[in-house]
Structures are given as structure tokens and as C-alpha cells.
Design a protein around this nucleic acid. Structure first.
Lengths: 247, 247
DNA sequence: TGTCTAGAGAATGTGCACATTATCCTGTCA
DNA sequence: TGACAGGATAATGTGCACATTCTCTAGACA
């Protein structure tokens, strides 16, 4: 009973802030992956992450399950959660499916878009260009992926959008792990601008061709599998990212 | 301490049987949904299911999370887990995405299949025909869905296969909730047989047309939204299904 | 009579303690 | 010296108790 009262006095958790905490934990781990410093095979231990992020182990657990579900991570029963080592074969298959879906996406968009779509697309491409200049790798990666999601969103078919979005985390994983460190090698923003132009011009055939070429180019780049960055201890990775967790 | 020893004496859980229990709980709830007796809006309460299935609440919790993830169910924070009421609009969107993917599937297969594919497809269609005759609604629903998954599997692209499979639970949900009770109204096995013929004949165009018509036919049928079966208390539904849980 | 409020009851959410399992290290024996 | 067995340690997995939130109902008041 004494214990019960003590607990009640100590608890100072904001009422509706639970999902916010969950999202912060999820985001921190996801950002760590996007940074490209987590090498395939790395084990993400629940107690370690809980200590580094200063949350209970259950929160880490939940976030890890979510990431496994989205295929950012892989779980082995009674063993733990690991950073996957996706194969080139998987890369090819993944981008084949993306090509099927995104071909349909740009074809639909070229046939006609909703009001405001043109503005959204243009400003997104502009944002990508500024990210290239500032040299923020994580930010550019995020924006590049989001471009494809944005296209799908503008189709007005939620199922199409969510189906493609489900493929993007795994796609980003390949990017994080195997993209070259130099940003100017990424064939991203330039292609994106051309695709937008074709779509807005209503040229479906050109848009489809550009999209397929764009995706093929990414496959080629990622198949090279440039040597990844040097490994870094977990605590250093998360120490760097911890400020963003609170924003 | 006495409590601790008592626990140890009572526990008689098989060592590796945990995942089996989880699967059983998951399967029981899924089967309940496929039976078509759970109406949209029904709340699936954790304590009730735990009592009916004779497992701990945590197991039920885990299974519900999984079903929510697969979009069989919908969760509302602090409120519970509910049987969804998917709209006709969603139905159309869903089948549009399926058409995009399955169009590509049959086109790939018509270009050439792996050894043994023909046999698998033929025997599957035969199985569907026998299910129609036996009048087992749940079984036919399961087989009909599995036919589309089988086609995707035979493509040899795991990503394509898993992407389509991710859409099938939600698709089955529409089927369970809104398909007419009479089995002979289902435009299933007959279409499937024709598609198999076209694929094995290498006629890609015909296979694609048949697949698109087949999916359109399903949309039309499900859009009618026949009156669902009468509601039934949860305990009766799960009492009927409990034997299968142990098999 | 309709609406709003307070409280009882029951559901969901979460931290913790403990059980179970894997890993690593050490010592022994061939 | 190498391989293997056994135990120490630390991880993952799970049931439970409690906190929090929601729902539903009875009753007061306009």
C-alpha cells in the first residue's frame, strides 16, 4: 500500500502523451537506420535502447515490433531484433513491384490531377534541391522517398497510396545501407523534376518511361553496394539523434 | 516464495508451443471473421475472448494487434478493437490496386511458368470445384482468396507475392461481410479455370482481360451489399469454432 | 421532460517481476 | 592444444497488478 501511494506520487506522465512517446522512440530508431550507420546484422537490444532513450523497455519493445512489421528490422524468436541484410535479388524484386505500381500512378496523374497537386509537386522538388545544396543526407533520403509517396497520394486512391507506402520503408533500407556516401551521386531530384513536368504536361507515356528509367537507375546504383560507413557503437548513434527526439 | 514455487509446479506449458498458441488464437478470431457472422461495428473485448478461448489476455492482445496490422480489424486507442465497416468506395479502390498487380501477375505467368506450376493451378481449381459441391462457405472463401495468392507465388517474385497477399485479408473482409449467402452466386471457380487455361496457353492478353473482368465482377457482386447474416453472440460463434483451434 | 453531471463499474494500457532461453566463458578431459 | 560440458550472466518472453480511460446509469436541476 505504501508502495502504491509512492508510485502515484512519482508518476508525472502527461495524460495523452503516450502515443507521442511511442512515436518518439519509433522515430529515433528509424532515424538511426536512415543515418546509414547501423550495419546489417547489428542487434538492437531492448535494455540498451531503453537506457539510451530513457524510456521503459516496453516502449522500445512496441517500437521494435512496429519496425519489424514495416520490415525495417527482422526479429528472431528468443534471439532478438536485427538490422537486416537485404539481398540484391530482393532489391530487384522490390523495384519491379514499385515499377508496376508507380507506372500506374503516373499514368493516372497524367490523365488529370486534383487542384493544388501541381503546386505540391513543384514545391516538393524545390525542397529536394535545397536539401541537396545543404548536404543533409538523411533529409534528402527522406524527401526522395516522400516524393514517390506524394505522387501516389495525389492519385486519390488511398489503397494504392498505402500499398506503395508499405514498400517504401524496405526500399529506404536498401538506400540507407547501400547508397554511396556522396550526395551528388544520387540520381534523385533531377529525375523527379522531369517526371513532374511530364505528368503536369499530361504526357502519360513520357511520364511512365521516365519513372521506369528512374527506378532502373536506382536499382543500378544500389546494386553496386558501395562499402558502407564504418560501424559505430549504438550509444554514439543515438546520442547524436537524441535532440531530434524531443522536437 | 511459496507463491513462486506453486507457480513453477503448476506451469505445464510445452517449451516451444508458444507460437502455436498464438497462431491458434489468431486463427480462431480470423475464422470467426470469415464465417461472416461478425457484423461491422462489433467490439472484440479482450477479457471476453480470453475467457472463451481459455488463454491469457496478453495472447488475445497480441492476436488482435496482428489482425489490426493486417487490417482485418480496426483499433481505437483506449476504446478497443472493432470489426470494420469498409465502404464501397474502399472496395473499388482496393480492387483497382489488385487489378494493377494481378494484371502484371498473369502477364508474367503467361510468358512462362516454373515447373510444376500447371499441376498446382489445375489441382487448386479442382479443389475449389469440390468445395462448391460440398457447400462449405468458409472453405470456398479461403480457397478463392488463396487462388490469387497462388498465382502471385508462382511468379517467383517474393515481393510481388507478399504485396498482393497484404491486400487479400482486407479483400476477404469485404467478401465475408457482403457476399451473398448462396454459394452458387459466387463467380469464383469458373472464372479461375478460364484464367488458368489462358495462362497455361501463353495467351497473356486473354489472361489479363479475364483477370480484369473477374475482378470487376467481384466488385459488382460485393457492391450490391446483400443483407448480412443475423448477428450472433460472440460466445456462440467461438463455441462453434473452438474444436478447429486444437487441430 | 430533456439535459447535464457525478460516480460506479468495466474495459484498455503499462510497468514490473519473474520464467525461459540463448550466449559466453571457464575448466576438464582426451 | 582442441573440443566439449557445465555454469554464470544477460537477454527475450509473459503473466499479473495496477493506473488510466471510457461507458453507462441514476439523479438533480432547469
Amino acid at each position: 500500500m505504501a508502495r502504491r501511494r509512492a508510485k502515484k506520487a512519482v508518476r508525472r506522465r502527461s495524460p495523452k502523451g503516450n502515443v507521442a512517446i511511442d512515436d518518439a522512440v519509433y522515430g529515433a530508431i528509424r532515424r538511426a537506420m536512415l543515418s546509414g550507420r547501423l550495419r546489417p546484422g547489428t542487434k538492437l537490444q531492448e535494455p540498451v535502447l531503453a537506457r539510451l532513450l530513457k524510456v521503459s523497455r516496453e516502449r522500445v519493445r512496441k517500437a521494435l515490433h512496429r519496425l519489424v512489421h514495416e520490415r525495417w528490422l527482422e526479429a528472431v524468436p528468443n534471439r532478438g531484433t536485427f538490422v537486416p541484410a537485404p539481398s540484391v535479388e530482393e532489391l530487384r524484386e522490390l523495384y519491379e513491384v514499385r515499377a508496376i505500381l508507380e507506372d500506374a500512378v503516373v499514368a493516372k496523374l497524367a490523365r488529370g490531377t486534383a487542384n493544388g497537386s501541381a503546386q505540391k509537386l513543384k514545391s516538393h522538388v524545390a525542397e529536394e534541391r535545397s536539401a541537396v545544396k545543404s548536404g543533409d543526407r538523411s533529409r534528402l533520403f527522406g524527401l526522395s522517398t516522400e516524393f514517390h509517396a506524394l505522387l501516389a497520394d495525389l492519385c486519390g486512391n488511398e489503397q494504392l497510396s498505402s500499398t506503395l507506402r508499405a514498400l517504401l520503408p524496405r526500399s529506404s533500407l536498401h538506400f540507407s545501407l547501400f547508397a554511396p556516401p556522396e550526395l551528388h551521386n544520387c540520381a534523385g531530384p533531377h529525375d523527379h523534376g522531369d517526371i513532374v513536368k511530364a505528368v503536369l504536361a499530361g504526357d502519360a507515356d513520357k511520364a511512365r518511361t521516365l519513372m521506369r528509367d528512374h527506378l532502373s537507375g536506382l536499382v543500378e546504383m544500389l546494386s553496386a553496394r558501395e562499402a558502407p560507413r564504418a560501424a559505430m557503437p549504438l550509444d554514439e548513434i543515438f546520442r547524436e539523434l537524441s535532440p531530434a527526439k524531443r522536437s
